[in-house]
Design a protein around this nucleic acid. Structure first.
Lengths: 254, 254
DNA sequence: AGAAGGACCAGTGGTCCGTA
DNA sequence: AGAAGGACCAGTGGTCCGTA
């Protein structure tokens, strides 16, 4: 089993982070929490020291301050169920992080209720702080915000999400390209439901705790604002407002 | 009619404020908006100048910078329907301000939807800024927050609210005393509905746009936390948590 | 070049306290 | 003493950009 854990480690989850991971033990989550928990302890010793001097004046050093600060492995486009190989993380793991945040939110909510304090309904800074506190240092706000809309597609139309993953993997696209591609089907969903992305998020039990990302909102607005034929802001990427004229396809409206 | 307006002016609403009041023209609101609109123009000239020098370096002076900054008339405890006399404002007027804020929120929401931006569900800073912008300078955050729970009682149990107003007026109490007295019946309402003040606010169409004030939340928590007999945190005032043991009366629980 | 995330920043909720 | 509200402040949502 030690081998299994180390193997899982090398493929998914946080690597080489100093951890006091609180294992959640909440059913489906199992595998990754375990991996994340056990990690680094053996591997971190291998790492060459760098920037030790600059990093050293941070106060309260425990013995880890001299190790180089490690990041999560980057994501790659994986098919549903596929485990990433090498120093990469797969998309199932990405989505799992969203579920973990939901669990952290629930815990924060319960604590708030118990103490008679304001009770957050969304994944707020407070929740990210809590995640850090209980050892889930691989969860952070910029990352979670960056991929919310991908998770949204996964929640709202898992079929479409799976298909897209297979397609993009097939084409050998990187994570950035996959992320961009997730916008289009979401705008289609919005079109079919009266363009109210907030209502769509709030109407879904797992999605309602996430803020609608700015760009998705802008894309939907641009698309809804164009003519019936021009609901295509989606196909391009950078600025939603400038792309609303370049229709490459037609969305079927209800 | 000029007399009528001036008379109304002296009794209710903003006085001696430099105004470009946007009259809302929204049905029930009528009277007070009119009063607030017409005001000052005649009276402000009477005012002695003070602190003109200190106030003068504020940039873009129009001719009003040399007038002393006026405040709203203080509130007094009035019965339902009673108009305050002298340089005072009545409680109907206070509650009317909450309705006005709701209208401002609706306008901010409509603007947000039109532009595809995030749409506030509560009376936020943005709404207070909007109120100022359209000339309702007599609306401000500290004031509205200070009396929310009084408005809440008015919304949730107008009968009880009216009775309380008559009682406190009878006793010759000041606004502060009335404000304090509003907590108690609210905790009673909370007790009867499972202690969830947020749910109570959110369940009421006019109340749902207001944040539950901290102290009311604390009082409810303290009361719900005491023994069945000790649901009396309400009767005292300053600190909710320290008063939860001094039960002066018994709330009937469901 | 592609990606993870520390850290910054404008504007928020909350209310104190200098003011009248 | 009682009350109105300017203005401050800790912590937020949002995401850039220095980093690896």
């Amino acid at each position: 089993t030690a081998n299994y854990v180390l193997d899982a480690l090398s493929q998914e989850g946080l690597s080489e982070e100093p951890v006091q991971q609180v294992v959640q033990g909440r059913g489906e989550a199992g595998t990754w929490e375990l991996a994340a928990t056990t990690m680094a302890v053996d591997q971190r010793k291998k790492h060459r020291r760098r920037k030790a001097v600059e990093a050293d004046f941070e106060g309260e050093n425990d013995q880890d301050d001299e190790e180089r600060r490690q990041r999560e492995h980057p994501f790659i486009v994986t098919e549903p169920g596929e485990v990433a190989r090498g120093k990469k993380n797969g998309l199932d793991y990405l989505f799992h992080l969203y579920e973990q945040c939901r669990e952290f939110l629930v815990q924060v909510q319960n604590a708030a209720k118990e103490r008679g304090e304001k009770c957050p309904t969304k994944v707020t800074n407070q929740v990210f702080r809590y995640a850090k506190k209980v050892g889930a240092s691989y969860i952070n706000k910029p990352k979670m915000r960056h991929y919310v809309h991908c998770y949204a597609l996964h929640c709202l139309d898992e079929e479409a999400s799976n298909t897209l993953r297979r397609e993009l993997k097939e084409r050998g696209e990187n994570v950035g390209a996959w992320r961009q591609a997730c916008y289009k089907p979401l705008v289609g969903i919005a079109a079919a439901q009266g363009w109210d992305m907030d209502a769509i998020f709030n109407g879904h039990p797992r999605l309602s705790i996430w803020y609608v990302p700015t760009k998705l909102r802008q894309l939907c607005h641009a698309a809804s604002t164009s003519t019936v034929v021009g609901a295509a802001a989606v196909s391009s990427s950078a600025t939603a407002s400038t792309s609303s004229r370049s229709s490459h396809y037609i969305l079927k409206l209800p």
